[in-house]
Design a protein around this nucleic acid. Sequence first.
DNA 1: CATGAATGAGAGTTCATTCAT
DNA 2: AATGAATGAACTCTCATTCAT
Lengths: 217, 217, 217, 217
Amino acid sequence: MAKQTRDAEATKANIIQNAMMLFAKNGYDATTADEIAKECGVNKAMIFYYFKNKAGLYSAVMSHALEAIHNEVITTDKCCVSPLADLEAFIKTYAKYCDAHPYLPALILRELSDSGAHLPEMVFGSLRKLFTLLSSILKEGETQGIFHNVTPMIVHFMIVGTINLLVTTKPLRANAAALESELDTCSECDIDEISDYIFTKIKLLLEVKNEENITCA
Amino acid sequence: MAKQTRDAEATKANIIQNAMMLFAKNGYDATTADEIAKECGVNKAMIFYYFKNKAGLYSAVMSHALEAIHNEVITTDKCCVSPLADLEAFIKTYAKYCDAHPYLPALILRELSDSGAHLPEMVFGSLRKLFTLLSSILKEGETQGIFHNVTPMIVHFMIVGTINLLVTTKPLRANAAALESELDTCSECDIDEISDYIFTKIKLLLEVKNEENITCA
Amino acid sequence: MAKQTRDAEATKANIIQNAMMLFAKNGYDATTADEIAKECGVNKAMIFYYFKNKAGLYSAVMSHALEAIHNEVITTDKCCVSPLADLEAFIKTYAKYCDAHPYLPALILRELSDSGAHLPEMVFGSLRKLFTLLSSILKEGETQGIFHNVTPMIVHFMIVGTINLLVTTKPLRANAAALESELDTCSECDIDEISDYIFTKIKLLLEVKNEENITCA
Amino acid sequence: MAKQTRDAEATKANIIQNAMMLFAKNGYDATTADEIAKECGVNKAMIFYYFKNKAGLYSAVMSHALEAIHNEVITTDKCCVSPLADLEAFIKTYAKYCDAHPYLPALILRELSDSGAHLPEMVFGSLRKLFTLLSSILKEGETQGIFHNVTPMIVHFMIVGTINLLVTTKPLRANAAALESELDTCSECDIDEISDYIFTKIKLLLEVKNEENITCA
DNA sequence: CATGAATGAGAGTTCATTCAT
DNA sequence: AATGAATGAACTCTCATTCAT
């Protein structure tokens, strides 16, 4: 297929791209080197030449993906304007990126559901960096007295986990809706509505003190 | 190992139990029939005798697990007392069950992250039933005017997804906390605190109208 | 299926009947004990109870079948009327029996094509008896001066082998004829025409001295 | 064992050769991939690498064998000299080839005794081609008025079937003769005698009109 | 850098056969 | 006599990985 490039970086990138897609679609074990090679139009041995082994490729794929999203989020983040603005940027950037690269959420969920059985430091570190970023936004909000009762880990999963799940289950939800028309699986919701909704709700949940809630007026 | 029972139901249950654990721990592909058989103290052929093939066993495992949690949630549900009480029951029962049977969340997450590539009707139906249950609670709350701006699917993932992730990542979070002491990964949080927190926050998020938020006083 | 008979002989006969069919259709290796049992409506263990093992069953099947054909041929043989009449009886009885019990030829051919790898004395003996019978007819004809230049083994295969092949290839020949209409595979020939033809031709071949053939007139 | 050739065609041919022998000796089901690989001095996986699966290998083996005999027969055929000369060439070439490659007859007989359950078009086609060749010789003879009352399919089996049977049963016949010394199983007959005999007899059977037979002078 | 041939270690699945009831 | 549960040995096929070119 792809003409023999003889360009190491291009070949590597090509393999990573296609592997990412396949790993996300079928999982680590169910993705074979043959399959990846065929998809890339590259000889199977090249995978081992460039990445040493399958785990090495997987690791490269994950680093690549997480690096990318972290960069995306951190650079778009209107850092330090205000915790609320930062939070909004975080949520919307993350959501948009996931929507554009839907393999990522699948990979992350799978990785988390294994307790990271498959993967090494680097990947683990990247996940942590993302959490650290959100964490610092939330803490700043608390310091400024605009967020209350924040447990960052839980809020993190409420945001990131929910987005991941909504993105990966998109086909499944469409399917479920088709079968049972009264069931609203948000199958038509687009990513902007979703991230708006999440942001609005998370904002509420962070701003309102537990004791006050609606009792105010 | 386990004495030869010659009791079909017991043998089947034994296999399902052990398979559930292994599938949850290692995923579908990485779990081998040999491994399951050894863990059960049963001849490998019994797996095929009772479940026809590996996929059949997986299907049985998933049905079993989802059936169980659905029953648990539905029977404990103080049905129809009030949407709020029902919601609390839903969240806490679900959380408690997951904590007690931590394979379940891993299985569910994995299944969702495939878009259900692996599994059949039954499983899919069970997942739907769980969502339908929460959905009806939320809708009743809206009808009664105590919940506002509810998008059930998203709220569902905010609850169920978050619990699943917190349960499955427990070891991972402990690990991360150990590496970097300032990072609060909620690694000490027990399931009751978690479900309390989630319930409180979800309650807020449902009860407050978007426009009002903290502007009240 | 078949109600529990508790009649040993009936059960055995039932198993033999069905096994014969399956062995003929699929061959020894491709026929499983499960399959036979299901076809008979009998528990699989009975096969081993009555026949010790699969080879034992096969042996029983072959003996039964060869016994049957040998009896048929020998009793119908208008023995000793005249070699020609005996030959005709042999051919026609054999052909008719094969046509009525088409598993037999398949079993025999398969057995012969293995050089009898599968089977024991008894079967081997039965085959020999059949050949001995024809042999004696041919020899008697030679003694009486009406048959010439007889090599019994070759003539035997010309008769028995040809009938076996025509019977077993019946579906194949129909198939071939359907594909290529100009090809005459004798797919419409019935067993009487066939045995008439074979008898007529074999008669010629035995009666004419090699040197004379058509040179006569 | 056999040194690693790294020559695809050689490896394939090697596998086909050995597989042909084993399939002929033990039949399709009783021949295992392990056995073939060991016999070839090749890694078992190569079988699947080159032939996709066991059935694929079998198919390749059959095509190869039938192709070979068809070529042999057709090139040796002194085509169109005279039907009688052609017939003689057909019979003798076929017999000689079978004698030299005794797996072939076993394979053919087995295939025929299944009604071709196992095998695909190609093989079926090759068998048909052989029959078509003989058929045309016989028809030409009839047109020229030297053969009479020809039913090609039956005559085909009388020739080809008989040769196949004689070749495959060679060990069996030797065995039978050893047991019972009076029985003449033609165990000493060599292939030239056999094909001479068959040719002579088939010639008779074709040339003499049914009604005349020995009645001549 | 790139390829196709080759390998070894399993994995899932089948099946004849035995055991306990 | 009859059954269903249980077993162990094989068998086909797959796949990550390496080697020779």
